[in-house]
Design a protein around this nucleic acid. Sequence first.
DNA 1: ATCGATGCAAAAGTTTTGCATATAC
DNA 2: GTATATGCAAAACTTTTGCATCGAT
Lengths: 150, 150
Amino acid sequence: MTNTISYDDVLENFKRLLKSNSLKYTTQRELILKTIYDNSGHFTPEDIYNLLKEKYPTVKLGIATVYRTLTLLEDANIVSSISFGAQGKKYEFGLKEHHDHLVCLECGGIEEFFDETIEKQQEEIAKKFNFKMTNHIMKIMGVCSACQAK
Amino acid sequence: MTNTISYDDVLENFKRLLKSNSLKYTTQRELILKTIYDNSGHFTPEDIYNLLKEKYPTVKLGIATVYRTLTLLEDANIVSSISFGAQGKKYEFGLKEHHDHLVCLECGGIEEFFDETIEKQQEEIAKKFNFKMTNHIMKIMGVCSACQAK
DNA sequence: ATCGATGCAAAAGTTTTGCATATAC
DNA sequence: GTATATGCAAAACTTTTGCATCGAT
């Protein structure tokens, strides 16, 4: 699923956000944001930490900073988190087109999809329960095409 | 959402399961199962531990047993677990009619619903992706009717 | 009497916090 | 120069495991 916004725009927005909150623009914050933007996957804080350690061995980085930055980015609605069962909480770039997930129980892989019928029906349900919907999550669990073939 | 089976039947099935696997029927296992059956809510392992400690102060019980029993019950498809965001993994009785969840972000309350259109559409999506669906989860997050009125 | 279950405490894993230092502004 | 961010290590949680003992069969 493609991102709806270019990285330059994301970065500019992020800088503006930092400035308006008297927060500082640091190398660590930029790299964490870039990692989540570039990789279409879904990452745990530790995944991101390891990826960055490997890719930029010279940059000083602590796991605490990853946690702190993810919280910051989530509050700013730049990334979103989602719990994938036993695997724990994962983060993904939040400014994609809205989509839901197919989670493979064999390989842990995640595919994304979007379905108009389901989107509409969710609104109907919220209305029926007089529920003010801010977000929704739908996950289909099973065995992906590739793993069935194994 | 009502349970589709009486507690007596649940207990009988559980005893049969234990027997056929050379496992033992213990007070702790029965109390944990009963707690999940009786309370329509969604519990963390610690919730269950605290509830039982309070209700049956004389029964010896360790948190490890709660974890072990929940794993056992989940493997046997008697309870099911679901991750509710930051709140971590929660367990609920699994032999209810199938349903999905409305999660209130204000009060943490959970309402259940069932929608035929969504069920059908999920099967369509799985088919489209050649995905062998074993389970699915859908959560609508927002503010419940009661909290909007506050 | 046997074999699995339990509680406890230790260990492993994950996330948060305090603090001295480093860095952006 | 000042205020915030960072890394590190310690602390706080959550979940799992090893082991001696207990209890169901």
